[in-house]
Nucleic acid binder design. Structure first.
Lengths: 209, 209
DNA sequence: CGTCTATTTGAATGTACTCAAAAGCGGTGG
DNA sequence: CCACCGCTTTTGAGTACATTCAAATAGACG
């Protein structure tokens, strides 16, 4: 529950992420200030980072590793909202900003290094470093657009097409994420994804020798 | 294509929207500056405001009326991304910020009055009036959270439950939006929604046994 | 190696879809 | 005022895709 803190300096994943998104360099002073506000943490495999129903006023930028954000429905089924990889912001944005109980769960899929920032420090960063605020606005705008597109695609395409366009966009996803979670992201059952893959491969995956 | 401009002063829908969201009052000077950046426009019924594939660097705050944002898939079917009512921001956020062709279409459902702002003026507003920037960040954060929730709900619930929770949240929606568009929002065909409604109406809320 | 989890496969079921047509509703003009 | 027209909603019959339940197989890890 309480991940060990790391003493090592903040990786420049954060700085690189900001500079590439706002197309500007940060001054050394700005980088230093930001580094002081972020705290690197290390998590293991399948560690729960945020739990639905509990307040979490920390946001995380993934330095390395992978995570998934999900909800659990009345039947106990997992539904993946988002996978996170290097450079992704994860956490429960609702709880982070409102201070109310989180809507989603966040877990690591593999050992991961996260750059964490508390809400108060986040607000400070926005005030002290305007470039950071700009960076955040762009980040969240992109996230919003992405989720709208996902809604649109979810309607237009059947599961097979959704799977194909997913692995087209993120070819390494199947190798980093178990298949049943990919299914939960696509909104189908693991069995259905298995059948879709079988159909796409044209023959039983296993019996070719 | 080119809606008539209105000479009347900007309604205080904008000011009220900002003040209620940031929990602060605007000064007269701030209100005045904002009013100068927004241009009210009037559109009729079923007027196209933004078209997929065309750049639209204007955003709209609905003063009165209703809109819908949608995509059209390969089969020519309409899929509703969002309905807009009084106080909602509408437009293609992707095109607005990136300057690239819009991903979505925007149409009025009934005659509507919109407060429009061009991208350049939007940027000015963010710089000149920090409260506006805060307001915008909260607005877009809420939009993002809402779309994530919609994705989550879309998975967990079947069409009947999605319909029920929709009319629970927005009871007046069926009276303002044609049923086939409600269906397109729920991700089902009009025939299916008709059957769902029939089933729900045919079944008493509480069966006497 | 054995255990646990993940994936695959089979068979029956169900929900929403397609295609087709009828009925309802609202507005307009004769 | 009524007849007609276009659009929306309803209904019917057959179909497709994904689900559920159940079980076998494959893989990962200690």
């Amino acid at each position: 529950m309480k991940p060990p803190q790391i003493k090592a300096p903040v990786a420049n994943t954060l700085i690189r992420s900001i500079e590439s998104k706002i197309h500007q360099k940060l001054t050394d002073s700005e980088s230093l200030s930001l580094n002081q506000l972020f705290l690197p943490i290390q998590v293991g495999r399948k560690d729960r980072i945020v739990s639905e129903g509990k307040v979490c006023r920390t946001a995380y930028l993934i330095d390395s590793g992978a995570t998934h954000t999900f909800v659990i429905d009345n039947n106990g089924s997992v539904h993946t909202i988002q996978f996170g990889f290097e450079g992704y912001w994860v956490g429960d944005i609702y709880s982070f900003f409102s201070g109310k109980p989180a809507l989603f769960n966040l877990e690591s899929l593999e050992p991961a290094r996260l750059l964490s920032i508390k809400h108060d420090d986040f607000e400070k960063a926005c005030v002290q470093i305007p470039k950071f605020e700009t960076y955040w606005r762009k980040t969240i705008q992109n996230g919003y657009i992405g989720s709208l597109l996902r809604i649109a695609k979810g309607f237009s395409d059947d599961a097979e097409h959704r799977y194909l366009s997913l692995i087209l966009q993120q070819p390494d996803l199947p190798s980093r994420v178990p298949q049943y979670l990919v299914a939960s992201y696509l909104g189908i059952r693991p069995e259905s994804l298995s059948r879709i893959r079988k159909k796409l491969s044209g023959r039983p995956v296993r019996k070719i020798s």
